[in-house]
Amino acid sequence: MSDNPWTDRIVGARMTVDQEFSSRIANSEFSSQQWSLIMTATEFEIEHPDDPDRARIVANTDKVEQIIPELDNIQTGMGAMGGQGGGQQTGSSGGGFLGSIKGALGLGSGSGDSHAEQQEAAERLAQEYADELQSHLESNGRWESVREAAADE
């Protein structure tokens, strides 16, 4: 169980949204393995839970920055195994073996720019997921009880 009882109430909803959101991930720059890591580093919060008109689920992505370098390792590892990610490689130096050689020789783009772009994309996608989750809860008549549980914390 988590430290947030309201999050415990939405486990089933998250599983449904995960399935519905999988096509969005497939069309993104992240593989499903990379997305799983991003979601592990993302915490969901309800802003303004006491105000029904302003309350909304937000993705707290403060920890995502810490896992961004690992996203490249996942992509490189998948390329080495002959696997393919759900989306495109985000670094302009290319992916797989050739990309890692270019990076080692300093011929690829700076990882700082690539990492900043990955972080922005991860944060944007995590918030899209949060919006989808809230929409799902609203359409199933569960949003108010979840919001109230968050307000009681």
Rank of each mutant, 00 (worst) to 15 (best):
E43F: 03
G108S: 11
I74K: 07
A130P: 12
M15L: 15
G99Y: 06
R56C: 01
S145V: 06
R124K: 15
F21L: 04
I25R: 02
G12I: 00
E47Y: 06
E65G: 04
E117F: 10
A151H: 09
E128V: 10
E47A: 15
E138H: 10
A130Q: 12
D3G: 13
S100A: 13
N4I: 07
R56H: 13
A150Q: 00
E128C: 08
A13Y: 15
R142Q: 15
R9F: 00
L105R: 14
A150N: 01
K102G: 11
R147F: 08
S36R: 02
D62G: 05
L71T: 02
R14E: 06
T42A: 06
N27T: 09
G85K: 09
A13G: 06
G12V: 02
M39H: 05
A126C: 03
G95C: 02
A104C: 03
N27S: 15
S36L: 09
L105S: 08
D3K: 01
I68Q: 01
D3E: 10
D8A: 14
A55Y: 06
Y129E: 03
M78H: 07
A149P: 02
V58I: 15
D131H: 04
G95L: 03
A13S: 15
D8H: 08
E20G: 12
L98A: 15
P52V: 01
R142K: 15
E132K: 03
G96H: 05
G141W: 04
S28Q: 02
I25G: 09
S111K: 13
A55T: 08
S31H: 06
E132R: 05
F30P: 00
Q66Y: 05
G99N: 07
S2Y: 02
Y129I: 05
I68A: 03
G77N: 12
E29T: 10
S93A: 11
M81E: 14
E65V: 12
Q84S: 14
E120A: 10
V11N: 13
W143N: 02
T16C: 00
R9C: 02
I25V: 15
D62V: 04
L98T: 10
S31A: 05
D18W: 00
G85Y: 04
G103S: 14
M1D: 12
